[in-house]
Simulated assay, not measured.
Amino acid sequence: MTHNTPLSPRPLSHLTEAPQHRVLTATALRAHGITAAVANERCRPGGPWQLLLPGVYLLHPGLPTSDERLHAALLYAGGECPPIPAQQGGGRTSCHAAARTAAPSGTPSGRSAAGHCPPPHPPRAMITGLAALTLHGFAGSPSLRALDRIDVLVPRTTRLRSTGCVHIVRGQSVPDPEEITGLPVAPVARALADTVGQLTDAGVVRRLLVESVRGGYCESGAVVGELLRARLLGRPHVRDAVDALVAESRALAEGMLYEMVFRHRLPDPCWNVDLRLPGGPHLGGVDAYWPEQAVALELDTRAPRPHLDQDAQWSEYARKREALEGLGITVVHLTPGKLRESLQQQAAIVRTALMTAVEREPAEYVIVTPR
């Protein structure tokens, strides 16, 4: 017997009765003792099976479910590597985290627990595009059943062609996927970039980008960064949508900041003001300023810009902060993500800065004007 000889066949009912086995590859079927000839015979017109994609079989007649289509797409694009195992309690996790959770302690390096991908090797294929946004819960994306195409992100070196309902998206860099219902799914920012690259409807692009921050799925900077890497910011309708995205992110962050101050009874600051020295240079604008304590608060809603790299943007912010602190002004830096995670914790940071202000030398006199 050679390694090409199939195993002795078992009754086929053991496959079709198990929901998780209703979509299998030719290689998996062979491991169950089913030759390609037998599989193809069962896929004849009127037969009990179907050939969904090259080398991927649906083990029942009729239309595949949305879940079966997703599994078939991943099996076609990702070979025999199983999807990320679902975590107890649900939620989203990265592939590496899922693999670490699944592997029992003491598992030797390079090996994995039965049924799981080895931790160092994440799935080489993941759902992206509109299907990924739907799995993430976007209201503005179609239902999985309504999608006639499933985008699958793979490394650029993967030799695959789009076929049937599967559209292969090749990436120079592939992010760690998130686990949703046991499937590897591209993070929201990457899925948005892969979606926007295929859309020409300005209204749809705008709605999806705005929903990404309005729904709390990700930060605007992450979205703009992915669009920049995908070289999509040169398209006018994408630039307009990004302007709306940044404005929405800013408005939401300011709303959370107001809520933090009033809910946690912090002293009323001067909102949205410019600071300058008497007869001197403009020091910059801040989102909130407490003159008596010389404490300034800045919301970081920066997004990457095509003409400045992220290091240059950070240096620009750092110079401004250094100038203010050089005058004795304490600068509190908050991000929308931190506010979203815990208003109470961020309020405690601001309160601490206000309380410790009395321990410092008085700040140099600055002029405060509305922005």
Rank of each mutant, 00 (worst) to 15 (best):
A230K: 07
L130T: 13
L192Y: 11
I367V: 15
R340T: 13
H60E: 09
V224I: 11
I150S: 00
G337C: 04
Q346H: 07
E298A: 09
L283V: 10
A303S: 15
C270V: 15
R124C: 10
H14N: 06
A318I: 08
G46P: 05
N4C: 07
T356H: 11
P19I: 11
A363V: 04
L147E: 08
R239Q: 05
S173N: 08
R351L: 10
H116D: 05
T163N: 08
P362H: 04
C165L: 13
S13M: 08
V174P: 03
E292Y: 05
S162H: 09
A98P: 03
S143W: 04
H307K: 06
L130W: 03
P122S: 07
V204N: 03
A113P: 01
L297C: 12
E325R: 14
G255E: 15
D151N: 09
G216P: 07
R145I: 08
T181A: 14
V23E: 00
L233V: 12
A26I: 02
V205F: 02
L24T: 03
F262T: 14
E316R: 13
S105W: 10
G197I: 09
R161I: 05
P120K: 00
G79C: 11
P306V: 13
M256D: 14
Y317N: 06
A86Y: 04
Y76F: 15
Y57A: 00
L63T: 13
P45G: 05
G234W: 10
P61K: 03
G90K: 10
V273W: 04
V223G: 04
L209H: 02
Q88F: 05
V368M: 10
T65V: 03
V238H: 02
A296T: 08
V174W: 01
V205L: 05
A97N: 09
T35Q: 02
L7C: 06
R360F: 02
A139M: 03
T16V: 14
V23A: 10
P155V: 05
N4A: 14
G216W: 12
L324A: 08
D274G: 10
D194I: 00
A241T: 02
Y365K: 09
L327P: 01
S342N: 13
M126E: 14
C117M: 09
G197Q: 09
E80P: 02
I168Q: 02
L59H: 05
R69V: 10
M260E: 06
L232A: 05
C218V: 15
T93M: 11
T181D: 15
D268R: 13
